[in-house]
């Protein structure tokens, strides 16, 4: 039992480590510096990679929908967002409904 709480405490620690380190390092990085631009590129690429993978190669329940439905639903979300004057909620809802209806 106590092992579990130790595990949780340590997992919490190693997770926070990167967050805190970012703040520590960021004090020494100029916002307009090249290093900052590079870090921003890495962060964007990382998230885009995860999301692209979730759409193209999902695991679990999403994997039971055809690829074209996942891609179409993503496109619908983006399109509706642009057509509604950048309304985030409506865009997301349109994508989700498309997927649920055809998936």
């Amino acid at each position: 039992m106590s092992d579990l709480w130790l595990l949780l405490a340590l997992c919490t620690g190693v997770t926070y480590f990167w967050r805190g380190l970012g703040v520590l390092l960021s004090g020494r990085i100029n916002v307009d510096s090249e290093l900052f631009r590079w870090a921003e590129c890495v962060a964007y690429a990382m998230i885009t990679g995860i999301i692209a993978r979730m759409v193209v190669m999902p695991t679990g329940a999403l994997a039971t929908c055809p690829l074209w439905v996942r891609v179409t639903a993503s496109a619908v979300a983006l399109l509706v967002y642009r057509l509604t004057g950048k309304n985030l909620s409506v865009g997301v809802a349109a994508g989700v409904i498309t997927l649920a209806a055809f998936g």
């Binding site: 997992c11 997770t15 916002v31």
Partner: peptide, 26 residues
């Protein structure tokens, strides 16, 4: 415990570029 910590540790690396970019703005 060690293997678990290592995996969780690596799974959280992604926070570094995020907080490096948000830190200076805060």
């Amino acid at each position: 415990l060690f293997a678990t910590l290592l995996a969780v540790f690596f799974s959280a690396v992604r926070f570094l570029p995020m907080t490096v970019t948000l830190g200076p703005q805060m």
